[in-house]
Design a protein around this nucleic acid. Structure first.
Lengths: 104, 104
DNA sequence: ACTTACCGTAAGTCATGGCTTACGCAAGAG
DNA sequence: CTCTTGCGTAAGCCATGACTTACGGTAAGT
C-alpha cells in the first residue's frame, strides 16, 4: 500500500498497465533517470505488486495479479463496514429533531 | 492514495471501520499523541476518505464512502488490464521454446 | 461568569526516502 | 577477444512529512 504512495512510482506502475515493459522503456517519457525507475520497480517488487523476468540483456517487468488482488481485498474489507456505518448515519439523521435517546 | 501510506494513519483509518469515533476515542490505544491523530484525520479528510461532524464539544469522524469508492475504482482499472496482460503472459509461456515473434 | 475539558493550529526537531551521479557487471555483436 | 549496450547498486544530497510540546479558542457544566 505504501508502495503506491509516491506519485512517480504510481506513474511507473501505470506504465505497466498496458502490458510488460523493460526498464528503459518505462524510464522513457518519465522525468526521472533510469536508475530511479529501477529502484521504484524494486520497491514495487518487494511489495508484491510487480514481478520481473530476465529477457536476454533486458529485464521485463509486469504487474503481479497476486499482490494487486490482496490490495483489492484489503480495501473491500473497509467498503462493507463503511457502507454499513453510513447506513446507520443516514437513519440517525432521519430522526434528527428527536435524536436524544442515548449517547456516550 | 498516498494518504494511506503511513502505518499510523492506516491504524487511525482502521479504527473508523467499526463506526464513527471522536478524536480522543481514536487516540486512546494508539502510541501517538492526540494532536497527531488530529493531523492524520485532517490529511484523511483532505483526501476525501473521511468526513467529520461536530457533536457538542467533540468532533466525530467517520469513513466517507465517496472517496473510498473512488479509490476502489482506481484500483479496479488496473485489475482488468493486469489480468489481460497476465493472460497474454500465460499464453506466451505456453509456446516458450518458440517465442521469438517480435517485441519492443 | 468562571472553570474545565476538548479540539485544532503553530513551531520546531528528526527520521524516512526519493533522486542523481558514478561505478561495476553481464550479455550479445563484430 | 573486445566493444557496446543495458541493468542494478552504492553514496551523498535534499525535500517531504511525521511527531511532540505549547498555545488559543469554543462549548458545556457549576
Amino acid at each position: 500500500m505504501s508502495a503506491l504512495a509516491d506519485p512517480t512510482r504510481r506513474r511507473v506502475f501505470e506504465r505497466l498497465k498496458d502490458g510488460p515493459h523493460a526498464v528503459a522503456e518505462i524510464a522513457r517519457g518519465l522525468p526521472v533517470s533510469r536508475p530511479a525507475v529501477s529502484q521504484h520497480l524494486k520497491v514495487l517488487k518487494e511489495a508484491g505488486l510487480v514481478a520481473d523476468r530476465p529477457e536476454g540483456t533486458r529485464r521485463v517487468y509486469y504487474i503481479d495479479p497476486q499482490g494487486l488482488g490482496a490490495l483489492r481485498k484489503w480495501l473491500d474489507q473497509f467498503w462493507d463496514d463503511a457502507l454499513a456505518a453510513f447506513q446507520a448515519e443516514a437513519e440517525r439523521s432521519a430522526k434528527d429533531t428527536q435524536g436524544r435517546t442515548d449517547e456516550r
